[in-house]
Design a protein around this nucleic acid. Structure first.
Lengths: 157, 157
DNA sequence: TGCAAATATTTTGCATGCAAATTAAAATGT
DNA sequence: ACATTTTAATTTGCATGCAAAATATTTGCA
């Protein structure tokens, strides 16, 4: 596999870079109609699944960087899609809760997954599964390599 | 495939988003040592492959957005990695050429692909091939759907 | 009790990615 | 030749992603 590893066109990373940008671009166009960016849409998806969760939980669920999320939530609050609620028992925590407007946006966004899906003409569901699986492996490998001596302790889930 | 399509954790796009960010993060750490960002590294890779090419050619080869590339090239010029050379025959065009410093950086960056590769413990070369192939399909599908009536003309490569 | 260490978020600063508008120069059609 | 169109790059404005530093609280312990 190392024969032409130095060529850009043979690099996995560059493929990933291009694919990710392509998807983001595609979403941007679609999401533009409901005035959301992709990360904002991801936040909405997470909240439609489970409302009134902690910011930490939202970070966990969306994989959006915390410092970016702060800004994103600020903009979404301005758009009246959600509210930030302080936890009285632990004043460090904040809960994020959808507004009525945020909840109702779910209906308008209902067909977005289908619209995206129908663009994938070259990929059947088995291949999509495969792809998701492989991407999971990539993420796992790249995120778990920080551990060196902790291998033994952290390996179990 | 549509049963739980609305769940974030089942979305191809979210996987891609996470994988792309993970890779970018991994590169960032490595590239930090030679004072390059990932897009800047991609530009260097392209130029190490073929020096003194047009900005348009660089965009084509790297898939980096043109307006972003302008800024990136500016920073790389400041770092004395490359030079922008005007084409006398066509004053719209500019060629990008590596400086001696830019060329010699190739040696210092030589082991980066290996360092990245050795992090992929769960993926063998066959799976990497598979993954790249699937990502190509994704990119192809998402980038070629602008055509509607042009299908007949543009379908051939 | 009291203070260091751990948590949960936010703030800052820098580098993109991208759509849209702009500028400059070359190619085309008449 | 001359206006129109196309091509090559740049500029602008907005939204992130992320490392690092700063804040505010809570926990854990001596």
């Amino acid at each position: 596999m190392s024969f032409e590893q130095l060529q850009l066109k043979n690099q996995l990373c560059h493929r990933l870079y291009m694919a990710s940008n392509s998807i983001a671009r595609t979403y941007r166009t679609l999401l533009n109609e409901i005035n959301l960016t992709y990360p904002q849409y991801v936040v909405m998806m997470a909240l439609w699944e489970e409302d009134k969760i902690t910011i930490a939980a939202l970070i966990e669920k969306t994989a959006i960087d915390g410092s970016a999320l702060t800004q994103i939530l600020k903009k979404m609050t301005d758009k009246a899609l959600l509210m930030v609620i302080k936890d009285e028992s632990d004043k460090r925590k904040r809960f994020i809760q959808l507004t009525t407007q945020g909840q109702s946006l779910k209906h308008q966004a209902a067909d977005i997954p289908k619209q995206i899906q129908c663009k994938f003409n070259s990929i059947d569901s088995a291949q999509a599964e495969q792809l998701m699986h492989l991407l999971d492996l990539v993420v796992h490998d790249l995120n778990s390599e920080e551990v060196d001596s902790l291998d033994i302790n952290e390996q179990r889930t």
